[in-house]
């Protein structure tokens, strides 16, 4: 079957029930989305499908409708998305393993809600688990990114 990831079309030969996460990681060598729990409880695998945040471990690739964007397609080290730039400025990451998912979720949040309150950030971001405890800086970085995006 065919799927489009970060603007590139790929052809893969897999069973339709294989979750998108494992098609990305093991078939297409796109390793930004991470395996953490496999059951939509940690958010480390979050990608965008047509701009909406989706836990790629939950989506059977046969049910994929739309274009996939992973962290690699959001921004690059040379050209950061505003959320990534805020993450660097606030030195958010510790181990960093959950941060691909955190950043993809935060970018989707700001797309729907350009100026979220702390309460709204809590409601949206609590599906993304961080075991290192980077939460205070995640909150600060989202506010900062929202500010930068509104000025742009």
């Amino acid at each position: 079957m065919k799927l489009t990831v970060n603007g590139t079309e790929h052809e893969v030969d897999v069973e339709p029930e294989m979750p998108l996460l494992w098609v990305l990681r093991d078939e297409l060598d796109i390793k930004g989305p991470k395996y953490g729990c496999g059951i939509a409880q940690c958010g480390a695998c979050t990608v965008h499908v047509d701009g909406m945040a989706v836990r790629s471990c939950q989506l059977p690739v046969g049910d994929l409708e739309g274009e996939v964007t992973t962290i690699e397609g959001l921004g690059t080290p040379e050209s950061l998305h505003a959320v990534q730039a805020a993450w660097v400025a606030h030195q958010v990451a510790q181990c960093g393993y959950c941060q691909s998912g955190q950043i993809m979720q935060a970018a989707a949040l700001l797309d729907l809600n350009p100026a979220p309150s702390d309460e709204e950030i809590d409601a949206v971001m609590s599906g993304n688990l961080c075991r290192c405890g980077t939460y205070p800086r995640i909150r600060a970085a989202i506010h900062d990114a929202a500010q930068k995006l509104s000025e742009a």
């Binding site: 059951i39 939509a40 836990r55 989506l59 059977p60 049910d63 949206v124």
Partner: peptide
């Protein structure tokens, strides 16, 4: 806030792992 469909994807295949969405 967080769209239900972020985790609860749309699929006719109901067969998920225990405790998955």
């Amino acid at each position: 806030f967080l769209p239900c469909q972020t985790c609860h994807v749309t699929s006719d295949d109901f067969d998920t792992a225990p405790h998955a969405a």
